[in-house]
Design a protein around this nucleic acid. Sequence first.
DNA 1: AATATATCGATATATTTTTATCGATATGCT
DNA 2: AGCATATCGATAAAAATATATCGATATATT
Lengths: 218, 218
Amino acid sequence: MSYHGISIAILQRLPTYLGYLKALPPNASDNISATAIAAALNMGEVQVRKDLASVSSAGKPKIGYVAADLIDELEEFLGYNDINDAVLVGAGRLGKALLEYKGFSGYGLNILAGFDVDESVVGKTDSGKPIFPLSRFENLCKRMKVKIGIITVPTSEAQAVCNLMIKNGILAIWNFAPTHLDVPENILVRSENMAASLAMLSSHLAKQLLIPKVSELK
Amino acid sequence: MSYHGISIAILQRLPTYLGYLKALPPNASDNISATAIAAALNMGEVQVRKDLASVSSAGKPKIGYVAADLIDELEEFLGYNDINDAVLVGAGRLGKALLEYKGFSGYGLNILAGFDVDESVVGKTDSGKPIFPLSRFENLCKRMKVKIGIITVPTSEAQAVCNLMIKNGILAIWNFAPTHLDVPENILVRSENMAASLAMLSSHLAKQLLIPKVSELK
DNA sequence: AATATATCGATATATTTTTATCGATATGCT
DNA sequence: AGCATATCGATAAAAATATATCGATATATT
């Protein structure tokens, strides 16, 4: 699968470059080379150059890229300039944390409101984001033509919420429930796979600490 | 990079299989085929079979695998049986949400405590997890021989916290700050890349809604 | 002005990952 | 019993991804 002609792998690395560029000190040079970026991020310089080539047309030998231009191009490409509205279902701890998080606007995401079946959490978050009863989901969703849905409900409810979202015009789903969601072809599901992350950490530890796995004993 | 001989890609898919198997109704057959798993999860059956081959030795033609055995083998392989202690630095909303989350124990993770420089958040979470001042990090970390660190501080503090963790014996870091962390070779950093997820959602939307990108106009 | 050097972009090679194919085998059916 | 079928595991082919190589070019140095 690819997006706008570039591979998922590249798309996932672009935000890293952008973050690095934006963190550069203001007194730094106007220019930045793929070599320098690669060194800072512990990557291959050819890969960085190739990745950047998919968003940028500039880049001069011996000079590198104009940092400011590269930032603009990355932000444009990643869609940080057009803000997308989103709705969130499941106002538990994680749901609330995401509702409150200020950083999303910088990534072009605006969470309009949270929803929950539990009427006791209905109201407003500390910073004023509304939490509505789930019964009002359909109305708000359609009226605001929201296209992005965030799922932060328990696994048992996730598929039902997913179906509800699709029924109301959601096209892209950010899923924090640790389960597979069944969706039609035109719907994108991006699951935040915490279990996979943990598997990696634990696997690394096992290797570092030299705990032999049953499967490796003879 | 690979873990215990299997690729990261496979390692990331294994928890999905496990989740699916555990969600199977108890009255279902004792056996499950790669074909069935693949159909349920929208994947290629050859891939499922190959992935499972890296953790399981069983599997009979026409029958498939013994579901219970497969669950055991996956859990063993993914390290869900030996519980790893972890510490978390940054007891903001996300940090607290993770501290409170009950599900991690099922993945072999036990967060002992949270730490924060802000003394006003020190105390206990609702469910009783302690939050200590950061000054006590070193002592607890070394005494308990903790090997996993979770970073939920703002980007500006992330590298410093990371360095502190490494100094105190942490070997694997789960990073929620949207920034690259510089670490020695033997340390694993797994960054939860929210920006990358958002990039994918936004990219999908742009395609679905047929908003042409500047870069695609002629 | 000539030369050296950093860096780019393009092309080529290598590696990894995914997907397809195929013979072998366990079970059910005729 | 013999045949059909679902499924496995292994091997092969294809596709995707990452890495290496190389000529071209912009600047700095002699």
